[in-house]
Write a protein that binds this DNA or RNA. Sequence first.
DNA 1: TTGAAAGCGCTAACAT
DNA 2: ATGTTAGCGCTTTCAA
Lengths: 342, 342
Amino acid sequence: MTIKDIAGRCGVSVSTVSRVLNNHPDVSEAVRERVLQVVKELHYVPNNSARDLVKSQADDIGLVVRGVGNPFFTELIRPIERTIVQAGYTLTFHQINTEDDELLAGAGLVRSKKLRGLIFLGGCFDYAPERAALLDVPFVCCSYTNSFGMLRKENYSSVTIDDRQEARRAVEELLRQGHKKIAILLDSVCDRSISQLRYMGYCGALSDAGLALDAGLVEETQTFDMAAAYAGMERLIKRRSDFTAVFAIADAMAVAAMKALHDNGRCVPQDCSVIGIDGIAMSAYSIPTLTTLIQPAEEMGETSVQLLLDMIEGRAQNRHILLPTVLRRGGSVCTLRQEDNR
Amino acid sequence: MTIKDIAGRCGVSVSTVSRVLNNHPDVSEAVRERVLQVVKELHYVPNNSARDLVKSQADDIGLVVRGVGNPFFTELIRPIERTIVQAGYTLTFHQINTEDDELLAGAGLVRSKKLRGLIFLGGCFDYAPERAALLDVPFVCCSYTNSFGMLRKENYSSVTIDDRQEARRAVEELLRQGHKKIAILLDSVCDRSISQLRYMGYCGALSDAGLALDAGLVEETQTFDMAAAYAGMERLIKRRSDFTAVFAIADAMAVAAMKALHDNGRCVPQDCSVIGIDGIAMSAYSIPTLTTLIQPAEEMGETSVQLLLDMIEGRAQNRHILLPTVLRRGGSVCTLRQEDNR
DNA sequence: TTGAAAGCGCTAACAT
DNA sequence: ATGTTAGCGCTTTCAA
């Protein structure tokens, strides 16, 4: 079933059918209707490979996710896919491991599938500009930005929260409740990614409050997964008994941390407060409800696609959007009792 | 940058380059090496649209997910994507709403993108055979099967647990602990999908135990999401005070139910036991740890892709795989105290 | 307003 | 072992 078949049935040429299919103006109303009619009757669907070959690009957008384990990403993928489809594009989905290079993966996809653009989730992006030039399509970093790289602002787009600032806010919320011995549970202090940025916010808040950084209260888990976070929290508990609050740099880690505290006989929040960042669905159903800074996941996903489409369709240049979080006070943080203020 | 450029640089014809690229045998070692060399130097990547056009099909597999909110699906998507890529194919990802028709969505994708096959997640599939015939590529139902439809076994593949039987096992675990007033929290009793099957298992277990079905203990939430499950559980609590256990047909719903019980002053498991099915990551970190039947998500995803590839590559016919679950005894179920046995 | 025809980049049949 | 060439299905000039 090709455009020829349709043309044959209608007694017109293939170019006329093509015009109808692509909404070109120069077609008589009568012909247009007949073609559309036959198309519907025969359930004809154009062959995208042929279209893409002629136009030398597909109506496809690539989504490269590094570390699909992260439940926060799941909440981003949904609005991203929805928005892409609404705009008439298709999503090619690719996940890579944390140790893989998202730029290389993206570049390969673009070349082989003729993608129109890319969205990255969970990338590092401390790449040199010449590396990023491998990507000859627009791309947007979703939920992070090129904080550690040398990319020029006008060469890529991003939609993210201000990780450093928001982490600072999270820690300040704990400080406000009187906590002074505040531990941090994170992936790594120097991963050139989210984790490091949020760590910087943590350090900044402590320093502003006149508190010294206590290296013994910094627990690195290497990965984002819950099992690692649980294990990390247990190490911390075994090692120290004097902290009264924990800042987990992601909700999933915070939930695992609460579990570890509970399993080790420490009550949240009475014995130890816990705060996270992300606002994943699950965190509203933990017991107690996690206190966290909620990222606007829907808006973040939609905006990322919007920026990309604006670039692809030539409506705008690269832009960088900073979205605010909303503090949800759950039950996992409480005011420090005076006698605990060791 | 096309195959012609490569041919030019190497002083050979395009067909020779094509042969090298496709690992055809009839190429001298010297030429093969030179071509590969130039390909690497120039970072040449073949244009898939052109390839697909010639071969009239792409190396793409479609994944149609109905109801992406379900966290269990997330754990399936990962192994599915991984296996697809390992086999040299690409994933085209499409999500639809619960009210949408996955068959229609799949058929459109197949036609326009020339997909080689489809994997469905969360479909209903009570479709008539003539509807399924719209799909002229092999497809596999992942984590469910065509229980309510008239499809012939040899016309599709599936990889799933025995939902009815496993639901029965879950309820039997509660019965074994002495529970008699067992409520069920589910999507719908007649959705022609997972929910209905698990409901049938629930009814079967009760009936085998000589217990009458108490309609007042059946709570339908209409959707799978946690907010709905929480609300449903609250309705149940308000309505009845005599049940001692709840079977939630999905882990996400079970976690929300535990939260609702807690927020309404009922302790899990002392006042009410909770059991789920799925084994999502989060359920191991709820407090208490959820008792649940764990589905082998990794294996389920991998096997689905394997079956599909076997079909696509002509190695095997359609098959139907039933995978077992593993009961994880968490802390959300306890033995009924005698005095509670009202 | 319509049609004829030239490619888009690649594969594979056929020729050498 | 290698080259020549005819399409794959479509869009888009160019001509009518």
